[in-house]
Simulated scan of single mutants.
Amino acid sequence: MPDCSENYEKEISDGKNARNIKCKYCNSVILTPSTAAFTSFEFQLPLIRQSKINEQNPETENVSLFWAVTDMFTFQNVGFSNTVGNNKYLTCADCEAGPIGYHDLSNKMSYVALSRVIHS
Rank of each mutant, 00 (worst) to 15 (best):
A93F: 10
M72F: 09
T70D: 09
T83Q: 14
S34G: 02
E59Y: 03
C95Q: 10
E6F: 04
D104M: 01
P33F: 02
G98A: 07
Q44F: 04
S13H: 04
F41M: 10
D104Y: 01
E96F: 00
A68F: 02
S40A: 05
E61S: 12
F66S: 03
Y89D: 04
I53S: 13
P58K: 14
S28L: 13
T35Y: 01
S81H: 12
P33V: 01
C92K: 14
I48H: 14
Y8V: 00
K10M: 00
C26Q: 10
K22D: 00
K16Y: 07
C92F: 12
P58T: 11
Q56N: 09
E42Y: 13
Q76C: 14
N17S: 03
Q76M: 10
S106W: 06
I48M: 15
P46Q: 09
L105D: 01
S13K: 05
E9Q: 06
G101R: 09
L90H: 09
V84E: 15
A36P: 03
N27M: 04
L90W: 07
K108M: 07
W67P: 04
S81V: 08
F80L: 15
R49S: 13
K16W: 01
F43W: 09
M72E: 15
K24Q: 06
V69W: 02
K24R: 06
Q44M: 07
R19A: 12
H103E: 13
F43T: 07
C95V: 08
S34E: 07
V84A: 13
L114K: 10
N77H: 09
N54D: 15
I118C: 02
L105T: 02
S110C: 06
F43G: 04
E59A: 03
M1N: 05
I100F: 14
D14Y: 14
L45G: 10
K16C: 03
S115C: 04
S28C: 15
P99L: 11
T74M: 13
R49N: 14
I21R: 00
N107F: 08
L90T: 06
S5K: 11
S40W: 02
S34K: 12
K22A: 01
Y25S: 15
Y111M: 06
L47F: 00
C23P: 08
D104T: 00
P2D: 14
D71F: 10
F43M: 11
W67L: 12
T74I: 14
W67K: 04
